[in-house]
Design a binder for these strands. Structure first.
Lengths: 224, 224
DNA sequence: GGGGAAATGTGAAAATAATAACATATTTTT
DNA sequence: AAAAATATGTTATTATTTTCACATTTCCCC
């Protein structure tokens, strides 16, 4: 079987695998489709597979000292639990689908073979990990320093520009989850969204958001 | 020359290098001693070397939208700029010595040769990166959810237990830097330290801190 | 389409921390 | 050792956000 060989959602790393490695991966890999709300990785459980998000949208989240926190939103294609798989034995965070997602479970020992034997593959993985780490620093600085309106503006722009490529989109998170993403209470998110609406920056119809004044939103995001 | 071979502060990765690789590294490596306050890596500059902290204590910090933020405190032995070196061309954060530090600058192309040719070496690096990423998530969750007293308590314990292995130590950061580490203002740090002192939890003599009631500090750190 | 559950909106009060303004202490320089 | 510069402490005021309480809306399931 050559499922992986002809997969259109290869990771940059797996593009470095040769045909025999790809067919080995195909044989040691299972794909699964998750619906919105399904838990893909559960915090605290043993991480026994490498998990690759082919298509879809997920949230990485972990329980903090006071409440749940969404670490980040990730879209396919991307590896989901590499740090947990290689950094420790168990999952340090959960991953939940926030839109229908197609996921591949790759056998860990097979994957480890590639890491041990194919330096180009490993090099690409390393680069992905490095980019993630830089990204996590930037995200942390941003979320701790911005206040509610700034964080909310930033994430509305993120959904519009990076995820949906449209100024009109349906929020994949409810108000409480947005709060967990930007470190604010459900109520503050609600209030701030209303303010944006009242000031003509966005239009809200339940979960549907339309960005009207993007420039203004950018200013608020950068902080003013 | 076999400086690296007989180095007592090898990284876990470089323990996987063979003798010829180690001597190649020795020839393409320069060591330098930094005094407290010296900048080792400058945010925005091109990252042209792999930088390895053999001994000492440093802060990783970056400029946020509002003010400087200390991302984390790192002690040797540890690689310092791997994410910047492999994740991008320039440094995304600065690194400054907060105590005298001994640092090795390793030629990037030499290092890259090891990565490409020695899978065990690269595997160890990957694990270090994974652990760092997990750690950065935990740290971010903690710093965003805890309030000033909790964050301060956590970091006092960190200095006592992880860095100095003593309940009596000299703070390597001033009040403003502590603020940048726990996301609080200089004044709040000062106030909270005074409170801890007044309640008999710690003793303060300028930068010298003595932890008196560690159990209490732990409770405050976990947050209650 | 109705009924219940879940999610959202909104106002007022309370909590937390920032800011401002200034006093005091410590360190560095000369 | 004196002077200047830097760092720290302290209080009152202000700003931001949370919490609480409850109204309203939307969603979902039979």
């Amino acid at each position: 079987m050559d499922i992986c060989k002809f997969c259109h959602h290869k990771s940059k790393a797996s593009e470095k695998l040769n045909d025999s490695e790809l067919s080995l991966q195909s044989e040691n890999c299972a794909e699964y489709r998750f619906k919105k709300g399904d838990i893909i990785i559960r915090q605290g459980a043993l991480s026994s597979n490498v998990i690759f998000l082919r298509e879809g949208l997920v949230k990485l989240h972990m329980t903090g000292p006071l409440h749940e926190q969404i670490i980040k939103i990730t879209y396919g294609p991307a590896y989901l639990g590499l740090p947990s798989t290689f950094g420790d034995k168990y999952n340090h965070y959960s991953v939940t689908a926030i839109e229908e997602s197609l996921v591949c479970f790759i056998d860990l020992s097979t994957f480890r073979t590639f890491v041990k034997n194919n330096p180009d593959f490993t090099y690409q993985l390393m680069i992905e990990l490095c980019v993630n780490e830089l990204d996590s620093y930037h995200r942390c600085v941003s979320r701790t320093q911005k206040q509610v309106s700034g964080g909310l503006a930033e994430n509305l722009l993120f959904f519009a520009d990076t995820i949906y490529h449209s100024n009109k989109f349906e929020l994949p998170l409810n108000r409480e989850e947005i709060g967990n993403l930007i470190d604010a209470s459900r109520e503050s998110v609600s209030r701030t969204l209303s303010n944006f609406h009242d000031e003509g920056i966005i239009k809200i119809e339940n979960k549907k958001i339309t960005i009207i004044d993007k420039e203004r939103l950018r200013l608020i995001s950068q902080y003013g």
